[in-house]
Simulated scan of single mutants.
Amino acid sequence: MSNRDMLIALYIVLIWGINFVVIAWGLEGIPPMLLGGLRFLMVASIGSLFFKRPNIPIIWWVAYAIPISFLQFAFLFSAMAYGMPAGLASLALQAQALFTLLFAFLILKEAIKGYQISAILVATSGLILIASSHDTHAMTAAGFGLTLAGAGAWALGNICNRSISNRGYDANVNLIIWSAWIPPIPFFICSVWLEGSDQIISSLTNFGWQSFASLAYLAVIATITGYGLWSYLLSRYPAAQIAPLSLGVPVVGLTSAGILLNESITGIQWAGTALVLTGLLVNTFGNRFSRRSSL
């Protein structure tokens, strides 16, 4: 990888890691469902000016957007609004890799290899350790559970993405941008239903610079710029070389949350974090080691 592209990769990891801190800031002035709707409305309205419409039937836009854009962030934003620290959220959400393995096995009938089973067991033990700490001031059980639900929704979106690709369509950043027209509808419906018109009006009438900056970051920097650059790297290098870079996201997330939000993590949570990251590393690099050992 060239030095320029390495800097791009590090930039992506940085903005995606800080993304969780920005969500926490955004939630200070905007309730979760309204924040999600405004985010994807901004993604769609701005991103559609720069990315061409994907040649994919609309039904697949909906099938992709509902789990990965609406459900994932409805759960994640709600989790962080109800007691999930930004740093731990950046880690627990990576459980999507494990859910993707399980859903691919159950839905697509893909085989699970031995090292992947080991990765699931190790990472799951870490998640159990983190879950066991829910009675501390650092995290609530509801927040943790909603974050895992978000990870599961992300995994379902990955399965849908794979199904789209298996049908011969090019499921790239164009799909992410244009399918963003879909989630504002359920987000705004849920906002009216769950948050109420009074809270919506109050949030919009008191819309300050922090709310605007958070929305702009989530939509323009984290989504349009982040996924646009990620798609660029995937077009130049093998996916196996690019995908492991996402392991740096929870590291940045935990670090930035500690510095910018003054979040603290208990000893049990650090132990769980280490096990989850170990499981993710085994899942990412286990195939390489198993192939070398068989030579």
Results as ranks from 00 to 15, higher is better:
residue 18 I to V: 12
residue 211 S to R: 01
residue 68 I to E: 00
residue 70 F to L: 06
residue 85 P to W: 00
residue 281 L to N: 04
residue 118 S to P: 12
residue 69 S to M: 04
residue 264 S to H: 14
residue 232 Y to W: 10
residue 71 L to K: 02
residue 60 W to H: 04
residue 102 L to H: 10
residue 135 D to M: 08
residue 71 L to V: 01
residue 124 T to N: 09
residue 182 I to M: 04
residue 168 G to W: 12
residue 261 L to C: 14
residue 164 I to L: 05
residue 261 L to I: 08
residue 293 S to C: 03
residue 293 S to Q: 15
residue 129 L to G: 10
residue 34 L to F: 02
residue 281 L to K: 01
residue 133 S to N: 12
residue 263 E to G: 08
residue 104 A to R: 03
residue 257 A to Y: 08
residue 82 Y to F: 07
residue 229 L to I: 02
residue 288 R to L: 15
residue 216 A to Y: 02
residue 123 A to N: 13
residue 145 G to Y: 10
residue 170 D to R: 06
residue 136 T to G: 11
residue 29 G to D: 05
residue 12 I to M: 12
residue 35 L to E: 02
residue 286 G to D: 02
residue 42 M to F: 05
residue 153 A to E: 00
residue 175 L to D: 13
residue 11 Y to T: 05
residue 75 F to P: 07
residue 62 V to M: 08
residue 256 S to Q: 08
residue 203 S to P: 13
residue 168 G to F: 04
residue 147 T to C: 07
residue 203 S to W: 07
residue 138 A to H: 14
residue 127 L to W: 15
residue 64 Y to N: 05
residue 158 N to K: 00
residue 162 R to Q: 10
residue 248 G to L: 08
residue 145 G to W: 03
residue 18 I to F: 05
residue 22 V to N: 03
residue 169 Y to M: 03
residue 175 L to F: 09
residue 249 V to L: 07
residue 190 C to K: 13
residue 215 L to Y: 04
residue 208 G to D: 07
residue 156 L to S: 09
residue 118 S to H: 13
